[in-house]
Structures are given as structure tokens and as C-alpha cells.
């Protein structure tokens, strides 16, 4: 449980700045704000659907900044050719949600 988060601090800063640029309300981004950003990756919609499933940890249909970082991390890895996992590996779970 003490393992470091795979999202590195410099990546987290980048993802946080994207998060903030999307106009979060109450620290959360709704699905309709996140969707176009993920679609921009040009990844198949079924892959993006899985990315969402894995990142929306509390299943509330919104992403907070840590959940958003998980989504962005998975998208960037997928663009590098790594498969999106079927379930979230423990090192990818944000420390705040373990």
C-alpha cells in the first residue's frame, strides 16, 4: 500500500494543469468535459470506455484530479502501444484512494 504511485510528480503536474484548464466544478470534471479530451487521443472508443471504467474509481460519473491523472496516464501509455489493463493494477491506484 506504500508503493509509489506510477504517475510521476512531473506527469501529475502536467495532468493537473490539463485538469484545471477544463474547468472543474467542485474539484470534479463531468464525463462530458473529459470525453472530448480522451477522444482527442484518437484511441478506439471501446478502449477509452475501459480507461474510464478504470479511472472513475468511485463510479460517480465524474473524475477528480487523481482519477483524471489515472485516465490520462492510461491514454498516454496506450498511445505508446501498451495495452490498457482489464483491471487497475495496485500501483496505479492513487495513494489517496487506497
Amino acid at each position: 500500500a506504500d508503493a509509489p504511485w506510477v504517475v510521476k510528480p512531473e506527469e501529475k503536474m502536467k495532468f493537473d494543469s490539463i485538469f484545471d484548464s477544463l474547468g472543474p466544478v467542485g474539484g470534479m470534471l463531468s464525463g462530458d468535459k473529459v470525453k472530448p479530451v480522451l477522444l482527442n487521443s484518437k484511441l478506439p472508443v471501446d478502449i477509452l470506455g475501459r480507461v474510464w471504467e478504470l479511472s472513475d474509481l468511485d463510479r460517480d460519473g465524474m473524475l477528480d484530479r487523481d482519477e483524471f491523472s489515472v485516465a490520462m496516464y492510461l491514454v498516454y501509455r496506450a498511445l505508446e502501444g501498451e495495452p490498457v489493463p482489464m483491471s487497475l493494477p495496485p500501483p496505479l491506484v492513487p495513494p489517496s484512494k487506497r
Partner: peptide, 13 residues
């Protein structure tokens, strides 16, 4: 894989 029916919280479904 996804729950059948019901309202989804996933904007990609």
C-alpha cells in the same frame, strides 16, 4: 464486462 441495462456512469458507452 459492462453491467447490462440500467444507467451507466461511463460517457463512452
Amino acid at each position: 464486462q459492462y453491467p447490462a441495462g440500467g444507467s451507466s456512469t461511463n460517457p463512452f458507452l
